[in-house]
Simulated scan of single mutants.
Amino acid sequence: MFLSKLLEPVKAAAREAGATLWQMYQSGDFQQQQKADQSPVTTADLAANRIILNCLSELTPDIPVISEESYLVPLAQRQDWPRYWLIDPMDGTQEFVARSGDFAVSIALVERGWPALGVIYWPKEDVLYYATRGHGAFKQQRNLINRIKVNQHQAGTRLKIAISRRQPLQPIIDLLQTEQAADYIALGSCSLKSCLVAEGKADCYLRLGPTGEWDTGAVHVIVEEAGGKILDSEFMPLSYNQRDTLANPDFIVIGQTSLAWPELIKARRTERQLTT
Rank of each mutant, 00 (worst) to 15 (best):
L72P: 01
P249Y: 02
T245G: 04
A12T: 11
L144Q: 11
S233C: 10
I172W: 09
G101E: 06
S258H: 12
V73L: 12
Q79F: 13
Q167G: 01
Q154S: 13
Y130E: 10
S67T: 09
T178E: 09
E68Q: 11
V197L: 07
T276A: 11
T132E: 11
K266S: 14
I173K: 15
R269C: 03
P89K: 10
N241R: 10
L159I: 02
E271P: 00
L175F: 07
D37A: 05
L6N: 06
Y184S: 08
R147P: 05
L206C: 13
L274E: 07
L175A: 10
S70F: 00
A47H: 02
R165H: 15
A104G: 08
T157M: 04
E125K: 09
C195D: 07
P89L: 11
Y71A: 14
D102T: 02
K149D: 12
P74Q: 09
W81G: 12
I145C: 10
L128T: 02
L196P: 06
D80H: 14
P210G: 13
E58P: 00
V197Q: 08
K193Q: 15
K193P: 02
I63T: 15
T275N: 10
A104C: 15
A131F: 04
L117S: 09
R269S: 13
Y184E: 10
K124W: 03
R207K: 15
Y130K: 02
G200W: 01
D126M: 01
I230Q: 07
W214L: 04
V73F: 05
E224L: 08
E225S: 04
I87A: 12
L7K: 05
D250T: 00
Q26W: 00
T20S: 09
A19S: 12
L6E: 08
R78M: 11
P61T: 07
E69H: 06
E234T: 00
F96G: 07
I173E: 15
T211F: 06
E234Y: 00
T270F: 01
L109P: 10
Q152N: 07
A131M: 04
T245H: 09
A36G: 01
E199Q: 15
V110Q: 11
G92T: 04
L246P: 00
I51H: 05
C190Q: 14
W114P: 00
R50P: 01
E179W: 07
A182Q: 03
